[in-house]
Amino acid sequence: NHVDFNGLFKLGEVMGLLQHHDTITGTSPMINIADALQRMHQVEKIGENLTLVLYQHILTQSSAINLSPPLTFCQLNESYCKPLATMDKFSAIIYNPSSVANQLWLRIPVAEQQTIHLDVDTVKKLSIDAQEIGTINLSPIIQSIPIVDKRNQLQELIVRVNIPPLSFQALPFTTLKQSQKVEAILFSNLSCSIENQNYVITVNAQGSITAIKLKSTNKNIDFNQNFGHYTSSSADGVSHQSSGLYVFRPVGTDPPKQVSIKQFYCSKRKGYEEIIQVYSLYVHQTIRLLDNSPYIEFEWTVGRLHRKYD
Protein backbone atom coordinates (compact mmCIF):
# COMPACT_ATOMS: atom_id res chain seq x y z
CA ASN A 1 0.00 0.00 0.00
CA HIS A 2 1.15 3.52 -0.78
CA VAL A 3 0.59 6.65 1.27
CA ASP A 4 -2.03 9.03 -0.18
CA PHE A 5 -0.09 12.29 0.11
CA ASN A 6 -2.97 14.38 -1.28
CA GLY A 7 -5.18 12.94 1.45
CA LEU A 8 -2.42 13.55 3.98
CA PHE A 9 -2.25 17.24 3.04
CA LYS A 10 -6.05 17.60 3.29
CA LEU A 11 -6.04 15.86 6.65
CA GLY A 12 -3.20 18.06 7.91
CA GLU A 13 -5.01 21.21 6.80
CA VAL A 14 -8.21 20.31 8.66
CA MET A 15 -6.34 19.06 11.74
CA GLY A 16 -4.37 22.30 11.84
CA LEU A 17 -7.64 24.22 11.82
CA LEU A 18 -9.42 22.07 14.39
CA GLN A 19 -6.50 22.00 16.80
CA HIS A 20 -6.74 25.76 17.24
CA HIS A 21 -8.07 26.30 20.74
CA ASP A 22 -10.94 28.54 19.59
CA THR A 23 -12.26 26.44 16.70
CA ILE A 24 -15.14 25.16 18.82
CA THR A 25 -15.63 26.77 22.21
CA GLY A 26 -18.41 26.37 24.71
CA THR A 27 -19.95 29.57 23.37
CA SER A 28 -19.37 29.07 19.62
CA PRO A 29 -22.26 30.07 17.33
CA MET A 30 -23.95 27.19 15.52
CA ILE A 31 -22.69 28.30 12.09
CA ASN A 32 -19.10 27.88 13.30
CA ILE A 33 -19.83 24.47 14.85
CA ALA A 34 -21.58 23.28 11.67
CA ASP A 35 -18.62 24.35 9.52
CA ALA A 36 -16.11 22.55 11.76
CA LEU A 37 -18.18 19.36 11.86
CA GLN A 38 -18.56 19.39 8.07
CA ARG A 39 -14.80 19.67 7.63
CA MET A 40 -14.28 16.83 10.10
CA HIS A 41 -16.73 14.61 8.21
CA GLN A 42 -15.02 15.33 4.88
CA VAL A 43 -11.65 14.04 6.05
CA GLU A 44 -12.86 11.27 8.39
CA LYS A 45 -12.57 8.48 5.81
CA ILE A 46 -9.29 9.90 4.52
CA GLY A 47 -7.93 9.78 8.05
CA GLU A 48 -9.12 6.23 8.67
CA ASN A 49 -7.62 4.87 5.44
CA LEU A 50 -4.38 6.78 5.90
CA THR A 51 -4.00 5.63 9.49
CA LEU A 52 -4.54 2.01 8.50
CA VAL A 53 -1.83 2.22 5.83
CA LEU A 54 0.61 3.94 8.18
CA TYR A 55 0.02 1.41 10.96
CA GLN A 56 0.66 -1.44 8.54
CA HIS A 57 4.01 0.15 7.70
CA ILE A 58 4.95 0.93 11.30
CA LEU A 59 3.85 -2.24 13.07
CA THR A 60 6.07 -5.29 12.95
CA GLN A 61 5.06 -8.00 10.50
CA SER A 62 3.84 -10.31 13.27
CA SER A 63 1.69 -7.55 14.80
CA ALA A 64 0.29 -6.40 11.46
CA ILE A 65 -1.15 -9.88 10.85
CA ASN A 66 -3.89 -9.05 13.37
CA LEU A 67 -4.72 -5.75 11.68
CA SER A 68 -7.07 -5.54 8.71
CA PRO A 69 -9.77 -3.20 7.35
CA PRO A 70 -12.02 -1.70 8.45
CA LEU A 71 -10.17 0.48 10.93
CA THR A 72 -12.65 1.62 13.57
CA PHE A 73 -12.39 4.70 15.76
CA CYS A 74 -14.41 4.69 18.97
CA GLN A 75 -14.88 7.00 21.94
CA LEU A 76 -13.93 4.56 24.67
CA ASN A 77 -14.44 7.19 27.36
CA GLU A 78 -18.15 6.76 26.54
CA SER A 79 -17.73 2.97 26.81
CA TYR A 80 -19.44 2.57 23.47
CA CYS A 81 -18.23 1.13 20.16
CA LYS A 82 -21.09 -0.10 17.98
CA PRO A 83 -18.97 -2.00 15.36
CA LEU A 84 -17.55 -4.35 18.02
CA ALA A 85 -20.98 -5.92 18.52
CA THR A 86 -20.78 -7.66 15.12
CA MET A 87 -17.07 -8.59 14.98
CA ASP A 88 -15.75 -12.13 15.43
CA LYS A 89 -12.28 -10.86 16.26
CA PHE A 90 -10.46 -7.54 16.33
CA SER A 91 -7.29 -5.87 17.55
CA ALA A 92 -6.92 -2.70 19.60
CA ILE A 93 -3.99 -0.52 18.51
CA ILE A 94 -2.08 0.92 21.46
CA TYR A 95 0.63 3.55 21.10
CA ASN A 96 3.19 4.66 23.66
CA PRO A 97 4.88 7.91 22.51
CA SER A 98 6.90 8.15 25.73
CA SER A 99 10.57 7.28 26.12
CA VAL A 100 9.70 5.11 29.13
CA ALA A 101 7.48 2.04 29.42
CA ASN A 102 3.85 2.72 30.34
CA GLN A 103 1.03 0.69 31.79
CA LEU A 104 -2.40 1.09 30.18
CA TRP A 105 -5.78 -0.09 31.43
CA LEU A 106 -7.93 -0.71 28.38
CA ARG A 107 -11.73 -0.81 28.67
CA ILE A 108 -13.46 -2.64 25.81
CA PRO A 109 -17.28 -2.23 25.49
CA VAL A 110 -19.13 -5.56 25.52
CA ALA A 111 -22.64 -5.92 24.04
CA GLU A 112 -25.58 -7.95 25.25
CA GLN A 113 -25.39 -11.58 24.11
CA GLN A 114 -21.64 -11.18 23.59
CA THR A 115 -18.45 -12.33 25.29
CA ILE A 116 -15.06 -10.77 24.54
CA HIS A 117 -11.74 -12.19 25.67
CA LEU A 118 -8.10 -11.37 25.15
CA ASP A 119 -6.59 -13.76 22.58
CA VAL A 120 -4.14 -15.24 25.07
CA ASP A 121 -2.45 -17.63 22.60
CA THR A 122 -1.62 -14.83 20.16
CA VAL A 123 -0.53 -12.56 23.01
CA LYS A 124 1.95 -15.19 24.20
CA LYS A 125 3.14 -15.87 20.66
CA LEU A 126 3.86 -12.17 20.08
CA SER A 127 5.34 -11.71 23.60
CA ILE A 128 2.85 -8.96 24.47
CA ASP A 129 2.77 -8.13 28.18
CA ALA A 130 -1.01 -8.05 28.71
CA GLN A 131 -3.41 -9.47 31.28
CA GLU A 132 -7.19 -9.82 31.18
CA ILE A 133 -8.59 -8.50 34.46
CA GLY A 134 -12.25 -9.37 33.90
CA THR A 135 -15.62 -8.15 32.64
CA ILE A 136 -17.71 -5.76 34.71
CA ASN A 137 -21.08 -4.01 34.40
CA LEU A 138 -21.05 -0.35 33.40
CA SER A 139 -21.60 2.13 36.17
CA PRO A 140 -24.96 3.97 36.20
CA ILE A 141 -23.13 7.20 35.34
CA ILE A 142 -21.59 5.83 32.16
CA GLN A 143 -24.94 4.35 31.15
CA SER A 144 -26.56 7.77 31.55
CA ILE A 145 -24.35 9.38 28.87
CA PRO A 146 -26.63 10.14 25.89
CA ILE A 147 -25.40 8.53 22.66
CA VAL A 148 -26.69 8.45 19.09
CA ASP A 149 -28.11 4.91 19.19
CA LYS A 150 -29.71 2.91 21.94
CA ARG A 151 -26.96 1.63 24.20
CA ASN A 152 -26.65 -2.15 24.02
CA GLN A 153 -23.10 -2.41 25.36
CA LEU A 154 -23.65 -2.55 29.10
CA GLN A 155 -20.41 -4.22 30.15
CA GLU A 156 -16.68 -3.58 29.88
CA LEU A 157 -13.75 -5.94 29.50
CA ILE A 158 -10.81 -4.63 31.53
CA VAL A 159 -7.32 -5.42 30.23
CA ARG A 160 -4.00 -4.28 31.68
CA VAL A 161 -1.14 -3.97 29.18
CA ASN A 162 2.46 -2.85 29.61
CA ILE A 163 3.75 -1.01 26.54
CA PRO A 164 7.48 -0.61 25.80
CA PRO A 165 8.75 2.92 25.13
CA LEU A 166 8.17 4.45 21.69
CA SER A 167 6.21 1.48 20.42
CA PHE A 168 2.91 0.25 19.00
CA GLN A 169 1.02 -2.84 20.07
CA ALA A 170 -1.85 -4.54 18.24
CA LEU A 171 -3.69 -6.28 21.08
CA PRO A 172 -5.84 -9.17 19.71
CA PHE A 173 -9.32 -10.08 20.99
CA THR A 174 -11.85 -12.79 20.17
CA THR A 175 -15.64 -12.66 20.57
CA LEU A 176 -18.45 -15.16 21.10
CA LYS A 177 -22.18 -14.75 20.51
CA GLN A 178 -23.23 -15.54 24.04
CA SER A 179 -23.83 -13.53 27.18
CA GLN A 180 -21.84 -13.95 30.34
CA LYS A 181 -22.58 -13.36 33.97
CA VAL A 182 -20.45 -10.83 35.80
CA GLU A 183 -20.21 -9.88 39.43
CA ALA A 184 -22.30 -6.88 40.42
CA ILE A 185 -20.34 -3.74 41.26
CA LEU A 186 -20.78 -2.57 44.83
CA PHE A 187 -21.36 1.19 44.95
CA SER A 188 -21.43 3.39 48.02
CA ASN A 189 -22.73 6.97 48.16
CA LEU A 190 -21.64 7.52 51.75
CA SER A 191 -18.39 9.14 52.84
CA CYS A 192 -15.74 6.66 51.78
CA SER A 193 -12.19 6.16 50.60
CA ILE A 194 -10.36 4.39 47.79
CA GLU A 195 -6.78 3.19 47.87
CA ASN A 196 -3.96 1.32 46.19
CA GLN A 197 -0.40 0.54 47.25
CA ASN A 198 0.59 4.24 47.15
CA TYR A 199 -2.41 6.42 48.06
CA VAL A 200 -5.61 6.68 50.08
CA ILE A 201 -8.19 9.20 48.81
CA THR A 202 -11.03 10.17 51.15
CA VAL A 203 -14.30 11.90 50.23
CA ASN A 204 -16.86 13.41 52.59
CA ALA A 205 -20.63 12.91 52.66
CA GLN A 206 -21.00 15.49 49.85
CA GLY A 207 -18.64 13.58 47.57
CA SER A 208 -15.75 16.08 47.69
CA ILE A 209 -12.18 14.96 48.26
CA THR A 210 -11.02 16.03 51.71
CA ALA A 211 -7.61 14.37 51.95
CA ILE A 212 -5.03 12.38 50.02
CA LYS A 213 -2.72 10.17 52.06
CA LEU A 214 0.76 9.27 50.83
CA LYS A 215 1.47 5.80 52.16
CA SER A 216 5.22 6.10 51.62
CA THR A 217 5.45 8.95 54.15
CA ASN A 218 2.24 8.22 56.10
CA LYS A 219 1.20 11.87 55.65
CA ASN A 220 -2.13 13.42 54.65
CA ILE A 221 -2.35 16.20 52.07
CA ASP A 222 -5.31 18.57 52.47
CA PHE A 223 -7.25 18.77 49.22
CA ASN A 224 -10.10 21.10 48.26
CA GLN A 225 -12.17 20.80 45.07
CA ASN A 226 -14.04 23.71 43.47
CA PHE A 227 -15.70 23.93 40.06
CA GLY A 228 -17.57 26.87 38.58
CA HIS A 229 -19.41 28.05 35.47
CA TYR A 230 -20.75 31.24 33.94
CA THR A 231 -23.77 31.92 31.73
CA SER A 232 -22.93 33.35 28.31
CA SER A 233 -24.63 36.50 27.07
CA SER A 234 -26.66 36.46 23.86
CA ALA A 235 -26.76 40.29 23.67
CA ASP A 236 -27.79 43.11 25.96
CA GLY A 237 -28.03 46.88 26.20
CA VAL A 238 -24.30 47.24 26.68
CA SER A 239 -23.36 45.31 23.53
CA HIS A 240 -25.29 43.70 20.71
CA GLN A 241 -22.50 41.19 20.20
CA SER A 242 -23.28 37.79 21.66
CA SER A 243 -20.77 35.64 23.45
CA GLY A 244 -19.10 33.35 20.93
CA LEU A 245 -15.94 32.71 18.98
CA TYR A 246 -13.09 34.89 20.35
CA VAL A 247 -15.59 36.82 22.49
CA PHE A 248 -16.40 35.54 25.97
CA ARG A 249 -19.15 37.67 27.48
CA PRO A 250 -20.74 36.31 30.66
CA VAL A 251 -24.03 37.65 31.94
CA GLY A 252 -23.15 40.21 34.60
CA THR A 253 -19.84 40.73 36.36
CA ASP A 254 -20.21 38.25 39.19
CA PRO A 255 -17.54 35.55 39.58
CA PRO A 256 -18.32 32.07 38.22
CA LYS A 257 -21.02 30.23 40.14
CA GLN A 258 -19.74 27.29 42.11
CA VAL A 259 -21.08 23.94 40.94
CA SER A 260 -22.04 21.40 43.56
CA ILE A 261 -21.79 17.63 43.27
CA LYS A 262 -25.28 16.26 42.58
CA GLN A 263 -24.40 12.69 43.48
CA PHE A 264 -21.33 10.50 43.77
CA TYR A 265 -20.32 6.86 43.89
CA CYS A 266 -17.34 5.02 45.32
CA SER A 267 -16.68 1.67 43.69
CA LYS A 268 -14.05 -0.99 44.23
CA ARG A 269 -13.24 -3.31 41.35
CA LYS A 270 -10.63 -5.94 40.67
CA GLY A 271 -7.49 -4.05 39.71
CA TYR A 272 -8.68 -0.54 40.52
CA GLU A 273 -10.92 1.61 42.70
CA GLU A 274 -12.64 4.85 41.72
CA ILE A 275 -14.83 7.75 42.80
CA ILE A 276 -17.40 9.09 40.32
CA GLN A 277 -18.61 12.64 40.96
CA VAL A 278 -21.72 13.74 39.04
CA TYR A 279 -22.18 17.47 38.42
CA SER A 280 -25.03 17.33 35.90
CA LEU A 281 -26.62 15.01 33.36
CA TYR A 282 -23.74 15.60 30.96
CA VAL A 283 -20.74 16.35 33.21
CA HIS A 284 -19.00 13.98 35.59
CA GLN A 285 -15.51 13.34 36.89
CA THR A 286 -13.86 10.04 37.76
CA ILE A 287 -10.95 9.83 40.20
CA ARG A 288 -9.26 6.45 39.76
CA LEU A 289 -6.50 4.52 41.52
CA LEU A 290 -5.07 1.66 39.48
CA ASP A 291 -3.36 -1.28 41.11
CA ASN A 292 0.31 -0.45 41.85
CA SER A 293 0.09 2.83 39.92
CA PRO A 294 2.20 5.77 41.17
CA TYR A 295 -0.35 8.17 39.65
CA ILE A 296 -3.86 9.34 40.52
CA GLU A 297 -6.09 9.54 37.43
CA PHE A 298 -8.57 12.40 37.05
CA GLU A 299 -10.90 11.85 34.09
CA TRP A 300 -13.48 14.45 33.04
CA THR A 301 -16.36 13.52 30.75
CA VAL A 302 -18.38 16.38 29.24
CA GLY A 303 -21.29 15.51 26.94
CA ARG A 304 -22.91 14.44 24.98
CA LEU A 305 -25.57 17.10 25.47
CA HIS A 306 -29.08 15.71 25.70
CA ARG A 307 -31.74 17.07 23.34
CA LYS A 308 -33.43 18.91 26.20
CA TYR A 309 -30.30 21.11 26.41
CA ASP A 310 -30.11 21.89 22.67
Results as ranks from 00 to 15, higher is better:
residue 2 H to R: 12
residue 8 L to G: 05
residue 9 F to W: 10
residue 10 K to G: 02
residue 12 G to I: 08
residue 14 V to R: 07
residue 14 V to Q: 08
residue 15 M to G: 10
residue 15 M to F: 10
residue 16 G to D: 07
residue 16 G to F: 10
residue 18 L to Y: 07
residue 20 H to Q: 14
residue 24 I to P: 07
residue 27 T to V: 13
residue 27 T to I: 12
residue 30 M to Y: 09
residue 33 I to A: 10
residue 38 Q to N: 15
residue 39 R to F: 05
residue 42 Q to M: 08
residue 43 V to Y: 07
residue 43 V to H: 07
residue 44 E to A: 13
residue 45 K to N: 14
residue 46 I to G: 06
residue 47 G to D: 11
residue 50 L to S: 09
residue 72 T to R: 10
residue 84 L to I: 15
residue 87 M to Q: 15
residue 87 M to L: 14
residue 88 D to N: 13
residue 88 D to H: 13
residue 92 A to E: 10
residue 95 Y to I: 14
residue 95 Y to F: 15
residue 97 P to Q: 10
residue 101 A to K: 14
residue 101 A to M: 11
residue 103 Q to M: 13
residue 105 W to I: 06
residue 109 P to S: 08
residue 110 V to H: 07
residue 112 E to A: 11
residue 124 K to F: 06
residue 126 L to Q: 14
residue 128 I to P: 12
residue 129 D to H: 09
residue 135 T to Y: 06
residue 137 N to S: 11
residue 139 S to A: 08
residue 143 Q to D: 13
residue 145 I to H: 03
residue 147 I to S: 10
residue 149 D to M: 05
residue 152 N to P: 05
residue 152 N to Y: 10
residue 152 N to V: 15
residue 154 L to K: 12
residue 154 L to I: 12
residue 159 V to C: 09
residue 161 V to A: 14
residue 161 V to K: 06
residue 161 V to W: 09
residue 162 N to E: 08
residue 169 Q to R: 14
residue 175 T to D: 01
residue 175 T to R: 01
residue 179 S to Q: 04
residue 180 Q to D: 01
residue 181 K to W: 01
residue 181 K to Q: 09
residue 183 E to Q: 11
residue 185 I to C: 01
residue 191 S to G: 12
residue 192 C to M: 03
residue 192 C to W: 02
residue 194 I to E: 04
residue 195 E to A: 13
residue 196 N to I: 08
residue 205 A to M: 00
residue 206 Q to H: 04
residue 208 S to F: 06
residue 216 S to Y: 00
residue 217 T to P: 00
residue 223 F to Y: 09
residue 227 F to N: 05
residue 227 F to Q: 03
residue 228 G to V: 01
residue 230 Y to H: 06
residue 231 T to D: 08
residue 231 T to C: 03
residue 232 S to V: 12
residue 232 S to G: 13
residue 233 S to H: 05
residue 236 D to H: 05
residue 239 S to W: 04
residue 241 Q to V: 09
residue 243 S to H: 02
residue 250 P to H: 06
residue 252 G to Y: 01
residue 255 P to Q: 02
residue 257 K to Y: 02
residue 258 Q to T: 11
residue 258 Q to V: 07
residue 273 E to G: 00
residue 275 I to V: 10
residue 280 S to Y: 11
residue 281 L to A: 15
residue 291 D to A: 12
residue 292 N to Q: 15
residue 297 E to V: 08
residue 299 E to G: 02
residue 301 T to P: 00
residue 302 V to P: 03
residue 304 R to P: 02
residue 306 H to V: 09
residue 307 R to N: 12
residue 308 K to P: 02
residue 309 Y to R: 03
residue 309 Y to S: 10
residue 310 D to Y: 12
